[in-house]
Simulated assay, not measured.
Amino acid sequence: MRLVLASASPARLSVLRAAGVEPVVRISGVDEDAVAAALVDPTPGDLVTALAVAKAEAVLDAVAAEHPDSVIVGCDSMLAIGGEVVGKPHTPEAARERWRRMAGRSGTLLTGHAVLRLTGGEVVARASGSEPTTVRFGSPTEEEVEAYVATGEPLAVAGGFTLDGLGGWFVDGIDGDPSSVIGISLPLTRKLLQVVGLGVPTFW
């Protein structure tokens, strides 16, 4: 029984490895904008969960052929702040603007997970859900924001910050699950694995 991580995120891979799991990594390549556009007035939790499901489903055929007895875990994260749900900034300009809005405020980092259990190459059980964590942002100086954006780190991560990287300098605290903010919630993943009939030690 292998755990397949349907994500290119090095942070998610690092969390799983530190927690005793060496996953098979398969990158989904899902068009997140297209998935989001197909949803009708979703809540933030519904949005990240739908994206996680899409990512797990995207690698299903390939994983079924390679690892017919396995569990696929799909993940997605977004930040809800000031009444808006935002993903990765992608550009330095967007990252700068994001930090101007976040500085000194709190936001909710939502992580959606989807779990597909395969037996003999067929899906025999599914589970999905989301986890909210409150993030309290510090107030970095303009110079600090410029230096942080110049590293490139905030451009490709949900909300434009990390907890476990350079962005950790500018996070005053969190209320909730730290692994969820990094990218994959260990408590939620454990609960979803239980729903599909598996325990975490299966993958140790």
Score class of each variant (00 low, 15 high):
Leu163Val: 03
Glu32His: 13
Leu193Met: 05
Ile27Ser: 09
Val115Thr: 04
Ala56Val: 05
Glu142Tyr: 04
Leu13Ile: 09
Ser185Met: 09
Arg2Val: 13
Leu110Arg: 13
Gly104Ile: 06
Ala34Gln: 13
Phe137Cys: 13
Ser130Ile: 00
Leu47Cys: 07
Val200His: 12
Glu93Val: 13
Thr49Phe: 04
Leu186Arg: 04
Val48His: 04
Val157Asn: 02
Val53Met: 12
Ser70Pro: 07
Thr43Trp: 00
Gly167Phe: 08
Arg190Trp: 14
Gly160Trp: 02
Ala64Tyr: 10
Glu144Val: 01
Pro68Ala: 10
Gly120Tyr: 02
Trp204Pro: 00
Leu13Glu: 14
Gly167His: 03
Leu193Val: 11
Ser28Asp: 06
Val71Ala: 09
Ser106Tyr: 10
Glu143Gly: 12
Glu144Phe: 07
Val85Glu: 12
Val157Gln: 10
Ser130Gly: 12
Val25Tyr: 05
Leu193Phe: 09
Asp177Asn: 06
Ile27Asp: 00
Pro10Met: 03
Val195Met: 01
Glu32Lys: 14
Glu57Ser: 03
Val157Trp: 05
Ala62Thr: 13
Pro89Met: 03
Arg98Ser: 11
Val59Arg: 05
Ala103Asn: 04
Gly83Ala: 10
Leu3Arg: 06
Ser9Thr: 08
Arg17Met: 12
Ser77Arg: 09
Pro187Val: 03
Cys75Ile: 07
Pro187Glu: 03
Gly152Ser: 00
Asp46Arg: 14
Ala65Phe: 00
Arg190Ala: 15
Glu32Gln: 14
Ala58Val: 02
Gly121Arg: 05
Val4Cys: 13
Arg12Tyr: 09
Glu153Ser: 10
His67Phe: 14
Thr111Arg: 02
Leu47Asn: 07
His113Ser: 09
Gly138Arg: 10
Thr141Gln: 02
Pro42Lys: 11
Pro140Lys: 03
Ala11Met: 02
Pro42Ala: 03
Val25Asp: 02
Pro89Asp: 07
Ala65Pro: 00
Val24Pro: 00
Arg2Ser: 14
Ala80Arg: 15
Ala58Lys: 10
Glu97Lys: 14
Gly167Arg: 04
Val200Asn: 00
Gly29Thr: 11
Ser106Gly: 14
Val195Cys: 02
Ala125Arg: 12
Asp164Ser: 01
Thr162Leu: 01
Gly152Cys: 02
Leu192Ile: 02
Asp175Arg: 12
Leu79Glu: 04
Ile81Met: 14
Val15Leu: 05
His67Thr: 10
Ala114Gln: 07
Val25Glu: 04
Val73His: 12
Leu193Ser: 01
Asp61Glu: 15
Asp61Arg: 15
Thr119Phe: 01
Glu22His: 09
Ala158Arg: 09
Ile182Leu: 06
Val196Arg: 06
Val86Tyr: 09
Val59Asp: 06
Tyr148Trp: 09
Val73Ile: 15
Thr162Asn: 00
Ser139Lys: 14
Glu153Tyr: 04
Lys191Met: 14
